[in-house]
Write a protein that binds this DNA or RNA. Structure first.
Lengths: 133, 133, 133, 133
DNA sequence: GTGGTCTAGACCACA
DNA sequence: GTGGTCTAGACCACG
């Protein structure tokens, strides 16, 4: 799992790490049970403070994507969000409204936006079909 | 243009205002040339600090969506972002990658995500056809 | 809302704060919309590092009990857990199994345990009846 | 006595072992005098470090639930906690306050909480009646 | 070795 | 004034 931080970005470092781990999992690099790089290791690699990595891993754990086990490391969890259906649906709606609005103001057409979404979808490894992810 | 602040939201107030103005423009409420409510008027309406509204209008101006005219108020600009094609496309890609990744981890399927995007697109008033907006 | 920390306790300080805030909300001290003490204020009061209070408030926010608003403070949220029904039920079961097991090994009888639960229930302000909390 | 470790759990392994032994005793599997599996045997069975099992048995001994005899193994002790009545009652109260508070914030009603407790109580084999256990 | 907690203190962003 | 992020560095707990 390759992670790269942009120190110039407006997004906080810990969020960049969170998103990149999420992305890696979504893309199928890293399966349930896989071990993440250790806090100190990743901190050294990215030249950030270990506490910053801790913060990222905490966030990922609270969102139910990984588990942190004292003494042995952090591991990717078996899928299934912890959120209620209502919260999930509301978040999806907000996510898409925001994207569409921003894309509109960037001057893109309906078709261009749909195409960009499809491009995004191609990179993600969805479960083959059926079953609870 | 109706603007509504959600005090339960963790998003900063100025961002909520920015997003709602963007949304209103995208939905076709408010056309180029239309005047936005004055800072003091809107601040009173929303019961927020006038500085917060100023901050929102500044942001919208920086993104090229409105123009602030000394003494006469703020007006919606004609479309056309100042960004280069390359930057625009990169932003669109990032936008969609982020949405897809988050939606995936919320446990939605490809089809559900596409549907949510289409729902979002329906609310926006795209130009009928042609030209660079 | 009175909060008291036991520095001798095995429980981490930030958890003690979290639990006491949860307790205060459950007991009806502090209603939705109420402002919590500011990070610096509470840190001074308890003689702990502000970061420790930040950690507590973060946790409470992630559990959906409060919202933190930059510039204005932290506020108690309107109820409704963010967790899915499955997760909620599983957590309740674990909670009770653990309590019963521990109480058994403390040497209490079925009746004593039930009574202690009822005593605990009396201190909490449940919604009058009906409606989603 | 069947012990099972959940690798998906965030609880430390030694605590999982401790709790399962406690649970097994509470459920009546394993009576006073019964021998626990040897450290090495259990460690192999669960694929964990023998030191981890040692740690669990130490904890159980400190809480007065088992006795470790050099060279012959660990045995379940006769009930009877060493704690004073005052401490015991205070611990029971804390236990139940915590459960009720957490259950409340999970959104459960008084009745649901009582029912969950009763479900928990059913699994435990209390002494038929009378005396201090 | 792993992660978990806490302190101290800097600097930024929001209202 | 509020909270948000990050660093540096100490010390503890788990395996």
């Amino acid at each position: 799992m390759l992670i790269h931080i942009d120190p110039q970005s407006a997004d906080p470092i810990f969020e960049q790490i969170v998103f990149q781990v999420k992305g890696a999992i979504a893309k199928g690099e890293g399966k349930p049970g896989d071990k993440l790089p250790s806090v100190r290791e990743l901190a050294r690699e990215l030249s950030v403070n270990p506490n910053t990595v801790v913060r990222s891993y905490q966030t990922l754990e609270q969102e139910g994507l990984i588990i942190r086990k004292q003494g042995s490391g952090c591991f990717i969890k078996k899928g299934a969000t912890k959120l209620s259906g209502k919260v999930r649906r509301s978040q999806l709606r907000k996510l898409m409204e925001r994207s569409v609005t921003e894309a509109f103001h960037l001057g893109f057409s309906k078709e261009e936006i749909k195409k960009a979404l499809n491009d995004g979808l191609k990179q993600v490894r969805f479960a083959k079909r059926g079953g609870k992810r």
